[in-house]
Design a protein around this nucleic acid. Structure first.
Length: 474
DNA sequence: ATGTAC
């Protein structure tokens, strides 16, 4: 920290005297040495106001936990957790932090839980860990799906051999910039707005709450948002012909997108988590796993809203893919897409269950999926093997190695430039928190899930667009 | 991940 922040400054930020102020000062003593004091102040203010967003932060989680605990004193009428919970399978045991395992242990103790699994890219999240799969009996957990409902991958493989990509950087860059929009709160207005059948879905009329969100959904249709979302050109390599996809051995130009249901889904998630927490009182350690009975009005409303958010996320990808396919004048040979933040009704060992995948790729037998690496590491087109112990699931990426805060502190701009140059990747936007070094090694993660998926083809990013880091600043 | 409220 370039200037000292005192207890007085913290009090002005709203930190109450006592344990929390002490913890904050302790953290400041040992961290953020290279960061401007006003940046650190902004960060602390965020922790104070939105502590739930910092529960997986290596440095700030202690402070965030203390703030949440102080605001949520224990109350009565609480649903009891199960003492001897069922076990679950962990894939890639060695790569997974304790925080994620602890969260999964708690999720297994819910009275509605039937089975669980942890994917090799798992890390601590909010409620259910990212990379957590949970099968419940007739209950839906809004935070078992996550804030970005229907967050998904979409891949279009074009009839363009690799050799026609090179030398056309300017064209690919121009179209990528012209037809994508990034950053929290970003939208289109007037005639810029995209059209899609999803806008006519009768489900927008299911409740007044959903009806109110139609305008926002329309304006944000075809936008990508922020965080780890991206739109990228790359080369996909089929080492051999795939009969099922009917695609020959070779290297093709492809488009890969990662984004979700934008403000629409986030609003649905926030609303129904709040409702679930009011109805379903759980002990403090499980508070974010509040669930809705599928037979209740609220449960049914969430189910409709969640599915609409999933279809909306899919529509956003479709709009982006259509615009870019047209812009480069290509024909799509194969399209593959999959949600990785969602819940499905699936049959497991003869019983119909609600399978929540929060940052996990569906991997039922023969089911196609996409597991991205990072902006420089390869992604993989996979085919599920239908492994029951993973509840027909696989990882949804490499998983973070560093929290965003840690990445910003420890990775430099020149580190980032060097690794991009090394891999011959052009980057538009993105902050240091999305640097490849902030992610686990995708090859290790793939090696930990050979029982779960077969690799069909390998995707190498060539030109990546993400949100500018400025778009996340307050 | 989102975008409001501090």
């Amino acid at each position: 920290m370039k200037t000292e922040i005192t207890g007085k400054t913290l009090k002005a930020l709203g930190f109450a005297e006592g344990k929390i102020l002490g913890l904050a000062l302790e953290i400041l003593k040992n961290n953020f040495q290279d960061i401007e004091a006003n940046e650190v102040q902004k960060l602390l203010k965020k922790v104070k106001n939105y502590p739930e967003n910092f529960l997986d932060d290596e440095i700030l989680s202690v402070l965030a936990t203390a703030i949440i605990e102080e605001a949520n004193p224990r109350s009565d009428g609480i649903i009891e957790l199960i003492a001897n919970a069922k076990t679950y399978t962990v894939f890639g045991e060695g790569y997974i932090e304790d925080g994620a395992k602890n969260q999964m242990n708690i999720a297994m103790k819910l009275p509605v839980t039937e089975a669980g699994a942890l994917m090799p890219d798992a890390h601590q999240g909010y409620g259910l860990p990212i990379g957590g799969v949970l099968a419940t009996r007739n209950a839906i957990i809004p935070y078992g799906v996550g804030v970005d409902i229907g967050c998904r991958m979409a891949l279009s493989i074009f009839d363009i051999p690799e050799k026609y990509y090179f030398g056309k950087d300017a064209m690919y860059k121009r179209e990528l910039i012209a037809h994508t929009k990034f950053g929290a709160g970003q939208n289109y207005s007037g005639n810029e707005r995209a059209d899609h059948d999803i806008l006519d879905s009768d489900d927008f009329n299911a409740t007044p709450f959903l009806k109110n969100l139609h305008g926002k959904a329309w304006a944000q249709l075809g936008t990508s948002g922020g965080g780890n979302h991206f739109v990228e050109w790359g080369i996909i390599d089929f080492a051999e012909r795939d009969e099922i996809l009917n695609i020959d051995k070779g290297r093709y130009v492809a488009l890969l997108t990662h984004s979700g249901s934008r403000g629409f889904g986030a609003t649905v998630a926030g609303q129904y988590t709040k409702i679930a927490k009011e109805i379903c009182k759980l002990p403090k350690e499980a508070i974010n796993l509040a669930y809705l009975d599928m037979n209740s009005a609220e449960g049914q409303e969430y189910w409709i809203a969640m599915n609409l958010a999933g279809d909306y996320a899919s529509a956003c990808h479709e709009v982006i893919h259509k615009k870019l396919t047209k812009a480069i004048g290509a024909k799509v040979l194969v399209k593959v897409e999959n949600h990785h933040n969602f819940a499905w009704k699936e049959t497991l060992n003869g019983e119909e269950l609600i399978v929540h995948r929060k940052g996990a790729t569906p991997a039922g037998k023969g089911v196609m999926g996409i597991i991205p690496g990072s902006m420089t590491a390869p992604g993989f087109l996979v085919r599920g093997k239908g492994e029951t112990s993973s509840i027909n699931s696989a990882s949804h990426g490499a998983g973070r190695l560093m929290s965003r805060t840690k990445a910003i502190q420890s990775i430099t701009k020149s580190d980032m430039k060097a690794i991009l140059k090394d891999h011959n990747v052009t980057l538009i936007g993105a902050g240091l928190d999305e640097a490849p070094m902030a992610y686990k090694d995708i090859n290790q993660v793939m090696a930990a899930q050979t029982e779960l998926v077969d690799v069909i083809a390998k995707f190498e990013p060539k030109m990546v667009r993400m949100a500018d880091d400025g778009s996340r600043e307050d």
